[in-house]
Write a protein that binds this DNA or RNA. Structure first.
Length: 304
DNA sequence: TCGCAGGTAGAAC
DNA sequence: GTTCTACCTGCG
């Protein structure tokens, strides 16, 4: 079935948004298992002209399936209107032609987005992608070829590293210890992830966060270890659909300072304030487009 | 082999 | 309040 909203699926999948790793891809079809109103549903999505074509296996109605996919790929966002907005701003006017059809890739599972975003800090896209896949394989539920992401209480008691696994399990050879977070390549982020799992099991309700205003949600999520301003903004944007977030890392700082401040060195904190003030409800999209514009236009190598 | 990249925590200013 | 450094791992 085709959803008649324009999107570049490949670009959206591969754009490194920290909501979740790209879905499994075979010859242009991207697949994953997603929880839809409590039922596991396997989605297969592919490009069809400028639109999204999909089929699914699972015990839900077609409407529920469309609604879930529309959320994940942000299909109700009006791209034409956004491109007009970009076109009306001299600094941004080139961006839509380099990123045509790029959309937010939102997390159906906020907890996955939280762990995924913690994992992405000070890391490469390739490495955090592999870590999240490893975590799913180790502690998620399997449906066909796909795995869900574990919930917070599933990660509460996982071992941090080989030593802890060796001490606390009855494995007699430390070389056989592989069922632990560090073995997923998360490095020093392992204790952050386990602590975050405790917080979201015992103290913070994921549902509450979506009811909060942006500032309140930001302050709440900042309390999670391993979550600083950049990661908090990613979690709020990709995991909770707060579109006014402007996740600012070193690249966004370089791009913003090049486009708006004559190349002058601005602190990341100021870049974040500037982006939120300047772009308002479009901040999340502008950040996404800035990054990919810089990547594809050659601006990034120039700024390095 | 080693230097580099990349956000956060914790300490120092 | 702002700035410095260590942190883990994969890559060149």
């Amino acid at each position: 079935m085709i959803i008649r909203k324009p999107i570049d699926l490949e670009l959206t999948q591969m754009s490194g948004q920290t909501s979740q790793p790209p879905w499994g891809e075979v010859e242009g079809t991207f697949s994953n298992v997603v929880d839809v109103n409590g039922s596991p549903v396997i989605f297969n999505v592919r490009q069809s002209g400028e639109f999204l074509d999909f089929d699914f296996e699972g015990n839900v109605s077609q409407n529920e399936a469309v609604s879930k996919l529309s959320y994940i790929f942000d299909l109700d966002f009006d791209l034409d209107k956004f491109y007009k907005y970009l076109g009306n701003h001299a600094e941004l006017s080139e961006m839509s032609k380099f990123c045509n059809g790029l959309r937010l890739f939102l997390a159906p599972d906020p907890f996955e987005c939280i762990i995924s975003s913690i994992c992405s800090a000070n890391n490469s896209i390739k490495r955090w992608t592999k870590s999240i896949s490893d975590i799913k394989h180790n502690w998620g539920n399997q449906y066909g070829d796909y795995y869900t992401f574990p919930q917070s209480n599933d990660l509460l008691n996982v071992y941090l590293d080989d030593e802890e696994e060796f001490d606390l399990s009855n494995i007699s050879d430390i070389g056989c210890c592989t069922n632990n977070l560090k073995n997923c390549g998360v490095g020093y982020r392992a204790p952050y992830m386990r602590k975050a799992s405790e917080l979201f099991t015992d103290e913070i309700d994921l549902q509450d966060i979506s009811q909060m205003n942006y500032d309140e949600a930001f302050e709440t999520i900042l309390k999670v270890p391993g979550v600083g301003p950049k990661v908090a903004d990613c979690i709020l944007l990709y995991g909770f659909n707060f579109r006014e977030a402007f996740p600012s890392d070193v690249w966004i700082k370089r791009i913003v300072s090049y486009l708006y401040f004559d190349g002058k060195d601005i602190s990341v904190a100021k870049v974040r304030d500037f982006g939120m003030e300047e772009f308002g409800e479009n901040a999340g999209y502008v950040q996404l487009y800035m990054f990919h514009y810089a990547r594809k236009s050659g601006l990034m190598s120039k700024l390095k």
